[in-house]
Structures are given as structure tokens and as C-alpha cells.
Amino acid sequence: MDIIRLKNVKKQYKNGTTALYDLNLNIEKGSFVFIIGGSGSGKSTLMKLLYREEKPTSGQIIVGGINVAKLRNSKVYKLRRKLGIVFQDYRLLPKLTVYENVAFAMEVIGAKKQEIRSKVLKSLEIVGLKSKIHNYPNQLSGGEQQRVAIARAIVNNPKMLICDEPTGNLDPEMSMEVMKIIERINEEWGTTVLVVTHDKEIVNKLKKQVVTLKDGRLVNNKAKGTYDNENT
């Protein structure tokens, strides 16, 4: 079964630049997919379309049964509750502790206090930060901050985890550590994982499905792909 279905998706920004031309892509539930491509290839636009930060100019996008292209602004939260999103810049709240940052994602959807406590601690345990729950983000390293962001993304048990350059700001060692956590989530919970990256090393090491974009078009979709130089 496909969790993501894109049909003839075109995205043209208001300034006239076209980021995606007639994109067709299906992604199966439970899979782990790398989306790679050089800058300007449209990979970030694709991500934004999936979590409805942008609307497609034309075409159909179905994510987890929701017609994203037709989703009204006031109903966007219904889509976002099915997704966990991780960004390159972590997007943590600096005035909240690690625990509060993760709990925030559950509080805003109205969860009960006891439920919040057990789930927050569980997801912080998965990312290996249970000992730092009272620290503030600025007291953590980049890798640790990204792990907090992952804990926040998975705390509501999303069907799908979308990571936009999750290792962009991290050194190779930390990058690998973060990717291992994401891989574990995919394997143990069956969460569909989409990772946008241009980090050659992790793509080649993990040997997952690789979707390659170039100049707004899909050029390659391999089951066990690698990051080849000719792709970029």
C-alpha cells in the first residue's frame, strides 16, 4: 500500500521559477527513502508540498489518505498530526527544556498529562537523551539537539517521518549516530521515513531506496541505491 502518491505534480513559485515539473512518485508504507539531488533540484520543494507548507500549482498529492493539494489552511493540522517533521535547524523552542520541547508536541493536540509523561520519556529514551531532560537546547550539542527534534517528531507515533537535511549541520560522526536512530525507528516501529540529504556517505552506507531529482524532474528511483556523482 502506498502512503504517498504524487500524480503529475507541478510547482511554480509566484516569482515564476518552476521547482517541479510533472512529478509522479509513489512511496510504499514502511519504506525508508532517501531523496537526493543537487541544489535547485526541487527536493526541498517536494518536502514542503508533502507537509503542506506549499500548495502544488497542479497535480494530485495524497499523503496517508489525505488529499493535500485540496487541504484548507484551517485543516492542515489534521495532516501534520500524521507526520513527524525534522529540520536541518532543529526548530526547538529555546525557552523550554528538552522535556518541555518534546511534551509541547503532545500538549498542543490536547493529550493527558500522564500519557504525555510516559510517551515523552519513552521517545527520549529511544534517542538516548533521557539523562538530559532538564537541560535547555543551548546546553546541548548539535547532534543532541537534532535527537531532541527527532524525539519530538516521533512522540505522537506518526505514520511517517519527514526529515529535511537532518544531518546538514552535523559532523560525520554525529550524522551517522542520528541516521542510526532514524533507521531504528523505521525498523522497529514500521514508520515510513523520508530523508532529504546530500550527504553521500550516509546514503552509500545505509543502502536504502534512493529517489534522485534533477532540475525539478525525477531521474532515478532505485531500491538499493547509492549516491553517484553523475546523479548530481
Binding site: Y77, R80, R91, A105, V108, I109
Partner: peptide, 13 residues
């Protein structure tokens, strides 16, 4: 914007 990303409805915000 983070509230919107983690799925808070406009009313909750």
C-alpha cells in the same frame, strides 16, 4: 510556526 508543524489546530494556537 512550530505549533503548526507539530499539528496544533488554529483554535488551540
Amino acid at each position: 510556526s512550530i505549533m503548526r508543524l507539530v499539528g496544533a489546530s488554529n483554535f488551540t494556537i
